[in-house]
Nucleic acid binder design. Structure first.
Length: 270
DNA sequence: CCCCATGTTCGACA
DNA sequence: GTGTCGAACATGGG
């Protein structure tokens, strides 16, 4: 489910527990979500610490607890964070529950593609340092985009936009939305995008991410009808721009929805 | 039963 | 070494 705006939405769900003590926790023992985590250490140190704050970066989140404790959370394909009552117990898909006096903080992930990590130390963990510039930060520049597209020049632009090392937080639907707005065919080799087309792409990467954050992050608002989003999974979907049929095609190993009448190959003159 | 799914990693291969 | 591609992970929904 989650791409950058949904991740930010889920991160905020646990804000209600900031400053309050973790009284105990429950871990789903066989869960694959803890493959990068020593659950014994987590069980030993987290009780009696307080949830301090959290931040998100792309699809990753970091929760900080008192006592120099840090928990990394990735939601994979089907992960969710939510809040339950203080006496909630875990079902089949609740892999981690943190109990506070008035509530429980719940991590649920049916497919278990997500991951939980844990770290002790006065500094943030190594796996949180050295992340690429956030798309919405000033450090994410047109030059950085151009350099990356040149390096991946033969790959379809759709596949390139999914690379978290340069586009942290972009997932399948955001990538399609961006290419649709920029009027670029998803199969276009990344190296062919230059000049004004590159500028359009850059602006729409920033623009779509900013709009998604504004609409989805606060309360899971639904994007408007004039986005590709609501049409992409409908049978016989219609492009909101041209009113002509959308198509679905596997590009870069992922199902891609695009509008042949609207999205074009870049011209040599661009 | 079949196919599909908003993600990432790993091994095979060019 | 570099880059690309499919399979695998585990589960549920249509």
């Amino acid at each position: 489910m989650p791409e950058l705006a949904e991740v930010e939405y889920y991160r905020r769900q646990w804000d209600v527990g900031w400053g309050e003590k973790i009284l105990g926790l429950q871990i789903n023992p066989g869960s694959r979500n803890f493959r990068d985590c020593d659950t014994g250490v987590l069980e030993r140190y987290l009780p009696n610490s307080k949830l301090r704050c959290s931040e998100a970066h792309g699809k990753r989140m970091l929760f900080q607890f008192s006592g120099n404790l840090w928990m990394g959370v990735h939601l994979g394909m089907t992960g969710e964070l939510s809040v339950g009552g203080p006496d909630d117990t875990s079902g089949k898909h609740e892999h981690l529950i943190l109990f506070q006096k008035k509530r429980s903080l719940i991590y649920k992930d049916p497919r278990q593609f997500g991951a939980i990590r844990f770290h002790r130390g006065s500094d943030p963990p190594a796996w949180w340092s050295g992340l690429p510039p956030s798309i919405l930060s000033r450090d994410f520049t047109r030059d950085l985009l151009r350099e990356f597209l040149t390096r991946r020049k033969k790959s379809p632009i759709k596949a390139v936009l999914l690379m978290q090392e340069r586009f942290p937080g972009i997932g399948n639907w955001l990538a399609d939305e961006i290419l649709w707005r920029a009027r670029i065919r998803p199969a276009c080799p990344a190296g062919k995008i230059a000049g004004i087309k590159l500028t359009h792409l850059f602006q729409n990467i920033k623009g779509v991410c900013a709009d998604a954050m504004r609409i989805i992050a606060p309360d899971w608002g639904e994007p408007p009808e004039n986005w590709l989003f609501l049409h992409r999974w409908r049978d016989n979907g219609i492009c909101p721009k041209t009113k002509k049929p959308l198509v679905r095609e596997t590009i870069g190993g992922r199902t891609t929805c695009w509008s042949p009448a609207w999205q074009r190959w870049p011209k040599e003159s661009d």
